[in-house]
Simulated scan of single mutants.
Amino acid sequence: MLGRLLGKVGEIRHLEEMELPPITEDLDPHTALVTSMSLSNWVGAARSALAASEEERIYFWNVNCVGKEGIPEARLAANPPTTMFEIHGSLLVVRGPVEKGFAIALEGALDNQIGVNTVVLGSGGGNVMEALKAGRVIRARGLGTSLGDNCYSACPLVFLGGVDRSLFAGSNRLGFHQVSVRGVPIPREHEIYQIISAYAAEMGADGAWLIKTMQATPPDKMHNAEPDSLCGLGIATFIQYWCN
């Protein structure tokens, strides 16, 4: 649906060619149930995509579709790129780029709400130093973090700010790669990696593993960490089915 709405027809054509079995009287009950649930999920996703703004569609395409299910790296630029803040009970859901002013905007969103105990993240990344500031805002307030979408690049650094850092069953992942400026990787010996490592240790995570993982992946790629590898590294404190 997003591919169609955003003009990425060629990128999603192979998905449209997939066919569900027709529901007929002789279809076995289990297959009929799975098929009907798939159709129901599609309708729900279609309604959500149609109701979303253009900016929201671009965000979901970039973070959740690009590079998945055979979809090529075909990210779209959000114009202007902004961060979206939504309150859902005790959750502050934050989606969008980690750009200049992100930490101040996060602090403002938290100041305006009472009873928030968890920041739910989803982002394609952004500015490293801004991510460290945001992580410290979260830690200073004693809040937890979790994922509502994929959390890539600088976003995992914000995630580390949570006192409790929870990952739940699903496809959302923490993604790591080299620090770069306009797509050009920063040298491994640059002080930014020392700053990140010290921050990770401050937050109770394994800074050496984090830097090694980041430096091993070029800026145009993403290392999607598997949940079972994060339990003993302090990257997460709770992972459904893996650690608690």
Rank of each mutant, 00 (worst) to 15 (best):
L6V: 01
V98I: 15
G183V: 08
S36I: 02
E86A: 11
E16V: 01
M18H: 10
G44N: 08
G126K: 02
L160K: 10
W209M: 06
G44R: 07
E55L: 02
Y59L: 05
E130P: 01
Q113F: 07
N64S: 14
Y193H: 09
E189P: 00
E73I: 07
A78P: 11
W42I: 14
W61S: 02
V163C: 08
K133D: 06
A32S: 13
I12Q: 00
L106I: 03
M37W: 06
S146M: 07
S36L: 11
L92I: 00
V120S: 14
L6Q: 12
L157A: 05
P80Q: 08
S36Q: 14
S153D: 05
L39K: 14
V98A: 07
V120C: 03
L157M: 09
G232D: 10
A74T: 12
H177R: 01
G162E: 07
S123D: 05
A154D: 04
R188L: 15
I23Q: 15
R165A: 00
A32H: 08
C151L: 09
R57M: 06
G115E: 04
L174M: 06
D111F: 09
D206K: 08
S146R: 08
A78W: 05
A216D: 12
A225M: 07
R95D: 02
G161M: 12
G101V: 05
M1V: 08
W42Q: 13
A131E: 07
T118N: 05
R165M: 02
I195A: 13
G70V: 04
C65Y: 01
A49D: 09
G125L: 06
T145Y: 04
M84Q: 15
V66Q: 05
I235T: 11
V34Q: 09
R57P: 01
V98R: 05
C231F: 06
K212R: 15
